[in-house]
Amino acid sequence: MKVGLAVPCFIDSFFPEVGIATLELLERLGVDVTYPAGQTCCGQPMANSGFNGASRGTEANFARLFAGFDAVVMPSASCVNHIRKHLDAIPQDEGVRQLRANTYELVEFLHDVLCVREFPWAEFPHRVGLHNSCTALRSLHHANTSEIEEKPFSKPLDLLAGVRGIRFVEPLRADECCGFGGTFSVNEDAVSGRMGLDKVRDHAAAGADYIVSADTSCLMHQQGCARRAGMPLRFIHIAQILNGASA
């Protein structure tokens, strides 16, 4: 299986360590993975703001770079959700349709496609609060949610169970949105900032040293809120822990 690695724009620019961990992890797991050069973005920022027309060039670039891969993997639930549900500013030929169907978020890819559960190189002896992004939860179904009557399950916890020494804390409002929301974070900065502050306080009160998530965008926002509030919380992407980061 030929796998293309798509690195979201904000990870590329501000959190390269997440992209590096994702690439190294996939390589470590024996995946035939390629990072095509010339990537920008998936088009989500414009499309989520209602301007799907403005994302045409971005989507075309994405589709051109990833044509021909058996699967595309991205360490970002909201980008994957955009590609699956909303990447429609460009003509929907067979290639684009296949690309949209074969794009996976990293946790799904590890859990459902590679079915990997063991990460013998990974050890993370810290107290961790897990933050599932809203898209990961309610669109990609990474885990059960508190709103729905269903059997508990959690793909990220299934993966993290293979990490030595990790301990989890339970915040009170585990699956409440942290308030990032893309351009919402700037357009509605007061609400967004307050939601973020409430989120990091909830994790801190539960005793977390780290907040771990499959979505860097949520982490970037929460980290900004925690730093402004002078809180010592630390933030890490799930790929980094699974790839053996120690802190």
């Binding site: 959190f15 390269p16 050069a37 700037v186 967004s192 900032g193 970037m220 980290q223 809120c225 730093r227």
Partner: peptide, 22 residues
């Protein structure tokens, strides 16, 4: 800076993922 009213900006890395990869 709507972002900066309530949050700190991320600490910028020395290079992007793309440049690391290259």
């Amino acid at each position: 800076n709507g972002w900066g009213r309530d949050r700190e900006l991320p600490t910028p890395p020395s290079e992007s993922f793309a440049s690391w990869h290259a």
